[in-house]
Design a protein around this nucleic acid. Structure first.
Length: 288
DNA sequence: AACACCGCCTGAGCGC
DNA sequence: TGCGCTCAGGCGGTGT
């Protein structure tokens, strides 16, 4: 569930906690949540288990390096060291990066990697379902190359860029919004919220959208994401930022999780269906 | 090449 | 109380 606003909330809270801190030691409890250079790429769940992992060193996980401000593109978070090396974090569905002060250090059941920092605090990668993971990135160039495969970041998406990305896509617009190569950062929640705000039916063919409708959509995506970031993201159950705080944007959801309820705009019954293999909620009257 | 679908994984919520 | 079932979904891999 962590999408762009949740990852950005994590990035900001994490920046306050780790920027300028040095890594004293690293503890890895589950090797298979980490993908190191030389590991078979892709690296998600099933593949990760079947893969023959290269030996993982504390150095790869930035032991004795110093953190600068974390970076983000779409839903990917990068813990960046002052020499340009980085660890890319995917939060998947249930992942979190938390920072604890030294007096609260009991390990919960799904903590997979811990970094002990020079001020006595501990940064933790926690992920119950392990759809997320960590990628060791050896240089700033390697991070750039990795992020070039993603579409433009959704928080600043312009109508021109969106129009360009959608031009030849025959998929439903919702499927296009969920494709990280088209637009980086939008998942199921914010796709439904953005399409509602723009008044566009989720199953419309992407390339068939008119120029004014794409302009409305780009504006809706930016507005929804900015508002969500301001609220600290959406917490359905698991999401916490680096300080352990949930986000409050769930209370502002117009359609997501509200199938069968009244449309906040026209009062019609919100419809639930499946689009792009995801549960999808929309208003049949407001969205055309 | 573009798209549909599978399966990874766990905890919550449900009916009985 | 507790069991078994279903559901949630980001993402790469496989099949069409």
């Amino acid at each position: 569930m962590p999408e762009l606003p949740e990852v950005e909330s994590t990035r900001r809270s994490l920046a306050r906690a780790i920027q300028g801190r040095r890594v004293r030691a690293v503890e890895v409890f589950r090797r298979d949540v980490v993908v190191a250079p030389g590991d078979p790429e892709g690296g998600f769940s099933r593949q990760r288990k079947a893969a023959k992992p290269v030996p993982l060193t504390d150095d790869m996980l930035l032991r004795s390096a110093r953190f600068v401000e974390p970076a983000r593109r779409g839903k990917q978070l990068a813990l960046v060291a002052n020499d340009g090396r980085a660890i890319v974090v995917h939060l998947g569905m249930t992942g979190a990066v938390l920072v604890r002060t030294k007096d609260v250090q009991a390990r919960s059941p799904h903590e997979h990697v811990r970094w002990l920092l020079d001020d006595g605090s501990v940064m933790v990668f926690d992920d119950a379902r392990r759809f997320g993971g960590l990628w060791v990135v050896p240089s700033a160039d390697a991070l750039r190359a990795r992020w070039e495969t993603l579409g433009p970041d959704a928080l600043g998406i312009t109508a021109d860029a969106l129009r360009h990305e959608l031009a030849r896509r025959r998929t439903p617009i919702k499927a296009a919004l969920l494709d990280q190569r088209v637009l980086a950062g939008v998942g199921n929640i914010y796709a439904d919220e953005s399409l509602f705000r723009a008044g566009i039916r989720p199953d419309r063919e992407a390339r068939g959208l008119s120029r004014p409708r794409i302009e409305r959509l780009a504006q809706a995506i930016r507005d929804v994401l900015h508002n969500a970031v301001r609220a600290g993201g959406s917490t359905l159950r698991d999401f916490r930022d680096a300080d352990g705080r949930p986000g409050s944007y769930r209370a502002s959801h117009a359609v997501y999780g509200r199938g069968g309820e009244q449309c906040p705009s026209c009062g019609a019954r919100l419809r639930t269906g499946s689009c792009a293999q995801r549960t999808t909620v929309w208003c049949g009257r407001c969205q055309r």
